[in-house]
Design a protein around this nucleic acid. Structure first.
Lengths: 232, 232
DNA sequence: TCCTTTTGGTTGCATCTGCAACATCTTCGT
DNA sequence: ACGAAGATGTTGCAGATGCAACCAAAAGGA
């Protein structure tokens, strides 16, 4: 876990959007934040540690893990470059992280003290406020995604979950032929259903001429039927 | 929808936590925000409107509603005093609200322009930063709640969802006898299961001596069995 | 090319749970 | 106290889906 002083190319990170590299260097110095290397399997923090930091994945990937009652760990989520993790707990003042964060592979991480981040410097660097705005925007977007997922998962049948998800994607793409970012396994995870059961439903929908698909490309054929499905 | 100039007692709102009434008055003036009265059934905004505002429920309650594909509206959520609504969409720069907000009963609402809220005044009022911090904290807490709910809902069986929820509540109360804030109907909604099916599972758990309950009070008797259930 | 691995579709079976209809108990207003 | 309305528990039934085991096709590596 040796320290590496390196501050290049941070401008591409959402947290630093709209802030030039020089300003970032000033901020990082002000935060006393540096990149650190974590070997695969080592912990960035443990559940129960005081929640002071937001982490940025510079390189590699980390798993957000929860210690089960029965002692074994469950992976809640995986975070890749260039996203951040832990921000909600640090900001919400829950005092302790309820989850651990573990390097899934050798990874480079920056930890930033949330208190320093959220409190504008007395010297009044204007870009500091930009970073705060970016952070808030990131959290707000996560919020919207979580809400979407809940709305999707709470549909009653696999058919409804699937159709809701596809329609949502199509609305965003403004196209009735879409390419989704998941394979079947990942899609079934997202919808929280069994993969083979999902497969069964997909085949049925195709057989009924409601939609066609190939790999991760989907196209809706019969919108009347889709409306019928969504309406319960 | 007549305007009412009234700025008392805002200190109790989470958004203004730690800010004194005088400062709030200054801010509200700076924001040009005032309370407005909305009659039951009228809309605070419609889906498709540009997302500029965060709303505070001063009085009454509002429904967050979504226009279904089939034309009818679904209530996504209900917001009471003193909570806020719309903040995620306004902050995330989605440009348009994807949901409408409708007064469920006669209600008093404050709408605050998010851009003004997020940009510290040039005069540099220190309390403005407090408000921003509060807003971020509110969103972060919502985030954590949403994550908890997802973790709960994605459990496979009703039994697991229920046990997960109860254990979570107990951890917070540090007591194995808890009082939950839901009646059966609301609990089944939260867990996203059928009420009678939930009732069935509850009775079975009681019959097996794993927990006892009365109204909204629950107590776990057999922790070994609980562990067994959580472990799958 | 060939072999291995990954990904995706199929199917029989058991079971969980949604649904509906009803029973019981509580709450509350008059 | 009485009746109405609301909350909660019970039960039979049907259908959806998790699961496991298998097969087929595609992808990737040597």
């Amino acid at each position: 876990m040796k320290k590496i002083l390196k501050t290049n190319a941070y401008t591409k990170y959402p947290l630093f959007k709209g802030v030039n590299q020089n300003s970032i260097n000033v901020i990082m110095n002000c935060f006393k934040s540096v990149e650190k290397e974590y070997k695969k399997g080592t912990y960035i923090w443990h559940a129960g540690d005081e929640a002071h930091y937001v982490g940025i994945v510079i390189n590699g990937q980390v798993n957000i893990v929860k210690d089960d009652i029965s002692g074994d760990r469950v992976i809640i989520n995986t975070v890749f470059n260039p996203m951040i993790f832990g921000e909600s707990y640090a900001i919400a003042k829950t005092s302790e992280y309820p989850v651990s964060v573990q390097a899934a592979v050798d990874s480079r991480i920056i930890l930033i003290d949330i208190e320093k981040l959220m409190t504008p410097c007395s010297v009044g660097c204007s870009f500091h406020n930009e970073v705060i705005k970016n952070l808030v925007e990131i959290i707000a977007k996560k919020n919207i995604k979580l809400n979407n997922r809940i709305e999707c998962i709470t549909k009653k049948t696999i058919k409804q979950k699937l159709v809701f998800y596809l329609m949502d994607e199509m609305k965003m793409n403004e196209n009735n032929e879409i390419k989704i970012p998941y394979n079947r396994n990942e899609l079934s995870d997202y919808l929280n259903v069994n993969r083979s059961a999902l497969s069964r439903v997909l085949s049925k929908l195709e057989e009924d001429g409601i939609l066609i698909f190939n790999k991760n490309k989907f196209k809706i054929l019969d919108y009347d039927e889709i409306k019928e499905i969504m309406a319960n």
